[in-house]
């Protein structure tokens, strides 16, 4: 990033990224390696391994039957569909908000900037009951949307969408914002001097530069939304086949002491998250490359 030209990172870059072990005069390698690996194994790796081992108690046919039951399929459709739409809404409004925060001045800008992170800091259960109160039939928003327009949001699939939009917004803003701030005005000046209109400059100069970050933000918001539980269950109504999300299926199975079934569904979600994690890593690598290239 912007530090690429300081001597520190230049020196660091030459040495990292190779596979041979380079000698470092700094102590603590064995201690920190041992501690990190031990703690990681204990807290993260063993529990994750438990999911895979528990699922292996099922034959593949049984596993397939559990993870493709109609109620489970309906929950995938809702979880993944609503997450996708919510992430798309966040990509549009998140880009707009990042743009406004970087490019314009307006009263209260610092407060808006600080509050963008609210969904990270506000416990999901609190967000869930607040959104439900707002969108219920007698709520501040619900009384107009449901009472006047007749569109049901709380206790319906639309409620899931609202909750997922809430929790995903900062991901897009916070990935796009630094890129926008680092952007050199020379690019736009060159485009303008060559006769590009403002929209053309945005479409053909800025958007391609922002795209990797925007997609990263989209993917992060999507990944978070798929696994979200706390903010959704209050507002969703949790009607089987209609507004039941996949994490709730896992909880329901657990409450019926169906550990194997719960684990099978969890495995599907875990595998999906791992794939998404790889995609996000690739997107981030692309993002830092394309920013480096634009310099």
């Amino acid at each position: 990033m912007a530090f690429a030209l300081t001597p520190n990172t230049l020196f660091g870059r030459q040495r990292t990224g190779t596979f041979r072990k380079t000698y470092s005069v700094l102590p603590g390698f064995n201690l920190s390696l041992g501690y990190t690996l031990g703690y990681l194994t204990l807290i993260v790796l063993i529990p994750i391994a438990a999911v895979f081992l528990k699922t292996s108690e099922l034959s593949f046919a049984e596993f397939w039957k559990v993870v493709t039951a109609p109620r489970v399929l309906a929950s995938y459709k809702l979880s993944f569909g609503a997450s996708m739409i919510a992430a798309a809404i966040n990509a549009v409004f998140g880009l707009m908000l990042a743009w406004v925060l970087v490019r314009y001045s307006f009263p209260g800008k610092r407060i808006v900037d600080a509050l963008v992170d609210l969904p990270f800091a506000l416990p999901t259960a609190v967000a869930g009951i607040a959104l439900t109160a707002l969108y219920a039939r007698n709520g501040w928003i619900g009384q107009y949307v449901e009472g006047v327009l007749g569109i049901k949001i709380a206790f319906a699939p639309a409620g899931v969408l609202v909750a997922l939009v809430f929790i995903g917004l900062p991901f897009v803003v916070r990935t796009v914002q630094p890129i926008l701030e680092d952007l050199e005005t020379e690019l736009e000046e060159a485009a303008a001097s060559l006769g590009a209109r403002r929209w053309q400059t945005f479409r053909y100069v800025l958007l391609p530069i922002l795209l990797p970050a925007l997609l990263t933000g989209f993917a992060l918001a999507f990944a978070r939304a798929v696994g979200e539980y706390g903010s959704v269950i209050f507002i969703a109504g949790n009607i089987p086949l209609v507004s039941e999300i996949t994490p709730l299926i896992i909880i329901t199975k657990l409450e019926q002491y169906d550990y194997v079934g719960a684990t099978a569904v969890a495995l599907v979600m875990l595998l999906f998250s791992f794939v998404l994690l790889l995609v996000i890593n690739a997107l981030q690598a692309w993002s830092s490359r394309s920013i480096g290239g634009s310099r």
Partner: peptide, 12 residues
């Protein structure tokens, strides 16, 4: 990237 619900399940 792990859903909180799955975290609980893993420790169960």
């Amino acid at each position: 990237s792990v859903s909180p619900v799955i975290v609980g399940l893993m420790y169960m």
